[in-house]
Design a binder for these strands. Sequence first.
DNA 1: TACATATTGGAGCGTCCACTCCAGTTTTGC
DNA 2: GCAAAACTGGAGTGGACGCTCCAATATGTA
Lengths: 188, 188
Amino acid sequence: MARYRVGLETRERILAATRRLLSEVGIEGVTLKAITDQAKVGAGSFYNLFDSKDDAVFEVVREAVEAVDPDPAGAGTDSLEDLVDAFVAFMTGSSPIARIYLQLAGRGLTDTGIAVRVLRSHRRRVERFTDAWQREDPTLSEREAQQRAETMLAALTGLGMTTLMDPGFDMRTHAMRLLPDSALVRGA
Amino acid sequence: MARYRVGLETRERILAATRRLLSEVGIEGVTLKAITDQAKVGAGSFYNLFDSKDDAVFEVVREAVEAVDPDPAGAGTDSLEDLVDAFVAFMTGSSPIARIYLQLAGRGLTDTGIAVRVLRSHRRRVERFTDAWQREDPTLSEREAQQRAETMLAALTGLGMTTLMDPGFDMRTHAMRLLPDSALVRGA
DNA sequence: TACATATTGGAGCGTCCACTCCAGTTTTGC
DNA sequence: GCAAAACTGGAGTGGACGCTCCAATATGTA
């Protein structure tokens, strides 16, 4: 889309504005007008660079979600605890993008296009957790490790929802109970 | 609101229409016009009986969610397995209201009014699960049982989201792993 | 420099939607 | 049977919002 330098810069300004709005007023507050006002750009410029409003929103959320990974390089050195810790930090941290992420997932329940994107990032995460499980306990079968990873992530997601709705909820304690040391997600 | 017989009947027609629409076209498809058309009622009649569109939607979802309970009387005879089973059935069953429920929860992440309603029903459910845990293992402290209940529900919610987005996902198997026989949610 | 192409702002279009208003009708209690 | 109050339909209001269109301008290339 953007081919000239100015275009690329405008694109960045738009993404920054979207990011800021998502954080400050939530997903409902992100209207096209809000974005273009914040970015000091006309609607025409916006559509010269993005196909739709959601395009910009997805881009911002995708970046934020990827940043959750404590080991983006995927070097395979992060422990289960690291992963859980990073997830908890994401949910309880100051960035309100966590809310947005779960809300998008909620929308994915009826919008197939969104579901595909959410599932894709979910699967990536399951892989990371599966690897960590096997590193923790090399005797685990691939299948078993994957089931534990899936269950663990599900629990983390559910705990995340509760903590986002109920600020008094102690997510970290509950989440730590999921670690193998606590014998919580160990299989049959 | 409704004081006369006709009013109560109209109210029921409106709720039935809303229920049907939620099932057939999802939460986005439920517009006031859709409801009033389906119920064969004027907008004025609607607002004579409900304060807002969301009022009717909440009422329908609340009824559906309460119906999940295998033992509505709360006689305290349902086992953990019964509860988990009922939850899985709700999520994987034919009623699309499960989607709506999770979507509303998603909205609750930014809408305080919704969060309050969602948390209220969440807490009720945690109580039921806590009781069941204590029935299963009477040596459990209240606190421990409650933590296990919270974790279990979180995992079920997360698994529910995955299964709603990915029809190929085997929720039942994963959910059953959470039962004490499978040593999954047992504490430290 | 000259030209093709990218970029720009923003007025305005089309649509959708929750909700109000109200005059007329029906129901109910007495 | 009568009055008060509830109920009714639906036209109309006000506003939000995503996106298009386009003339004017800036940018990069040869």
